[in-house]
Amino acid sequence: MKQPRWIKPLFYAVVILACLFFILPVVWTVISSLKPESDIQSYPPSWIPAQVTLSNYRTVLEKFPYFTWMANSLIVAVVGTLGILVASTMAAYALARFHFRGRRVLYQSIIVMLLVPMQAYVIPLYLMAGKMDLLNTLQGLILPSVANVTSIFILHAFFRELPMELEEAARIDGAGEFRIFWQIMLPLSGPALSTVTILTFIANWNAFLWPMIAVRQDIMKTLPVAISQYWGAVNQNASFQYGTALAACCMAVLPTLVVYFALQRYFVAGIASSGIKG
């Protein structure tokens, strides 16, 4: 199958166009956020700002409890991710390596929840969280996020692949199950743990529906919710300031982009593996 000569340039053209489609909205957001409001709402729009200013960013930080929101977001995402790492790693390890009755059924009843989105159980969750006094608290945002299923799926698949011999040898040497897990299995699990870390951190950082329902108090909100309520459709009117809105957006996505670029190898592997074996 020899390729005609014109086909490579065509491929490049399509791929480059696709990449522009993905990246230009982001670039445009950043550029716009750096313009003064009078330049933003002007015609024609220009890709090169006549005047670069950080005034929109200053407005966001001075007039809104932005750092509080960001701290809330960080606490929820970091603690939630740590919680998932501890709870899911242990559970997935047990489901993959220990022999006990009902193991398969238990695993399958957890995994089937992959198909049940938060949107389908958020009302009972709200009622329960209310009973447990978890509404308007950060714990109330963290705990439901720890009941994460994707991590079980990824880690279970990983632990199953580890060779049996490692475990047997350690057992003959008299190591207990916990030591085998802690000193032999975990040190081998770097890639799988990195994958889970990045996937769950981003999922927690981006979480929207539950934080919006569970928290009504302004200073307890996370960034996605606070931003959407100040600058989303519910608040659009004639005097809407896009400059501040876009500045708030840029600062909120920065942490995700940093984590993504730092760990993107594992991110791609994570998406691929969370799919393939499913």
């Binding site: 990246i23 950082w205 959407s228 909120a252 993504y260 993107q264 991110f267």
Partner: peptide, 22 residues
Amino acid sequence: MRTISIIPYVLIPSIVGIMWNW
């Protein structure tokens, strides 16, 4: 290119909404 194409998926969905509003 692979890295760039996943950026939209990584961004906060509600903020993606505001970007596109603009």
